[in-house]
């Protein structure tokens, strides 16, 4: 794998997003949702809003963004490959001196930077909370690291579904479905066979994220997200290569 072509593809993707209104519309909507959720309609487990709960913390938002991401990230990833397939530019791309792995990693990197920018754009929120009370910065940093890891895993799944189809809507729906499945699978633990409960609980994106959102960076959670992302990318590469089969 070479960095130069990967970065070139990533830049091309970012350029597509930011040279058109797409990025601005999507990220603005995301920011509006985050601000309104944190300060107005979001409620904690005790049913209290941010001001009623009277705690200077970003937990409320950090627990909601993974759900927002279920809708946002597949919207970013849906066109990554399927659009290339639909418009036929994928053939142009593969004639270049570049491997399938580099294409997938480049596309992934472009999407990840987009997610990173969306997260950076939410930084005014912790700054606002910080002016209202003493915010635990460590927990905020951990929360953002967790969101980036979770976003990467979601993006891997979205990219995978984008490889599978030419239709962006299908890619979006499949991606959102997969992300929701892995996020909410923890809630299904009690309804599965006892022997599989531990595995199901382990596969839950939510339980791993909950740990990080508390402010703890546990190597097990980091390894889990990275390995799930890598697995999704491997499957994406293999799926992309299937176009060569006769």
């Amino acid at each position: 794998m070479r960095i130069k072509p990967i970065w070139a593809i990533a830049k091309r993707e970012l350029g597509f997003y930011f040279n058109s209104p797409i990025a601005y519309v999507v990220i603005t909507a995301f920011l509006l949702l985050c601000g309104a959720y944190l300060f107005i309609f979001g409620k904690g487990p005790d049913g209290q809003t941010f001001f009623d709960g009277d705690v200077a913390s970003m937990r409320l938002l950090f627990e909601a963004i993974p759900v927002f991401f279920i809708f946002l990230v597949p919207a970013i990833s849906m066109r990554l490959i399927s659009e290339e397939k639909r418009s036929g530019t994928i053939e142009l791309l593969v004639t270049m001196p570049i491997t399938d792995t580099e294409i997938i990693v480049g596309k992934f990197l472009g999407g990840l930077v987009f997610i990173g920018i969306a997260l950076v754009a939410t930084l005014p929120l912790p700054i606002l909370v910080g002016t209202l009370g003493e915010l635990d910065l460590g927990a905020v940093v951990a929360g953002y690291i967790g969101l980036l890891l979770l976003g990467a895993a979601y993006l891997g799944l979205g990219l995978m579904t984008s490889v599978w189809t030419q239709n962006q809507i299908v890619a979006y729906l499949l991606g959102a479905l997969l992300c929701a499945f892995f996020y909410f699978i923890g809630g299904m633990v009690e309804s599965v066979w006892t022997g599989a409960q531990d595995t199901v609980a382990f596969l839950s994106f939510e339980s791993h994220f909950t740990n990080i959102a508390r402010g703890v960076i546990d190597t097990r959670d980091v390894v889990f997200y990275l390995s799930m992302t890598a697995l999704a990318l491997v499957i994406s590469v293999q799926s992309l290569q299937s176009r060569n089969w006769k």
């Binding site: 635990d136 910065l137 460590g138 927990a139 940093v141 951990a142 382990f202 508390r214 402010g215 703890v216 960076i217 546990d218 190597t219 097990r220 390894v223 889990f224 390995s227």
Partner: peptide, 16 residues
């Protein structure tokens, strides 16, 4: 890898 990381793990608490 996940099995291995379950038995050999480290934690970094970023809270103050």
């Amino acid at each position: 890898i996940n099995q291995l990381s379950s038995s050999l793990f480290g934690r970094l608490d970023l809270t103050e």
